[in-house]
């Protein structure tokens, strides 16, 4: 079981944030700090590569919703979710929030949509 790792890659039309490992409720704040940093740089077009995420809780969903609302303000961006493992997708489905997210099977598709 891996600890949380994050990497940020600046692409031409968006920022790719790769999350790996476990995002339990004590780690959601670390993800939030990445979003806050990007917002302070005026970067609101974000793709989240979730292919290596092993675990999430409602705290992560709260962070995601909060910053997705900020990103979408003034039509300046959004947070696209890419390559969700089945178990992580199950948590989104259980939350009932899946319809509010733009979800892509692959990172390439999500990045290409910007």
């Amino acid at each position: 079981m891996a600890d949380l790792n994050m990497s940020v890659t600046e692409l031409k039309r968006c920022v790719l944030v790769k999350l790996s490992g476990r995002i339990d409720s004590s780690k959601a704040g670390e993800v939030e700090r990445v979003f806050q940093d990007l917002e302070s740089q005026g970067r609101f077009r974000i793709v989240l590569d979730m292919s290596e995420v092993e675990y999430i809780s409602s705290a992560f969903l709260r962070v995601l919703i909060t910053h997705m609302k900020k990103a979408k303000r003034f039509n300046r961006g959004n947070i696209y979710l890419a390559a969700m493992p089945p178990r992580i997708r199950d948590v989104f489905e259980l939350s009932g929030l899946l319809p509010v997210f733009k979800v892509y099977d692959t990172v390439v598709e999500a990045v290409g949509d910007w």
Binding site: S57, R62, I65, S95
Partner: peptide, 10 residues
């Protein structure tokens, strides 16, 4: 979307 209550729902 309301942020609270999700944990309990889970």
């Amino acid at each position: 979307v309301e942020i609270g209550g999700l944990g309990l729902h889970f």
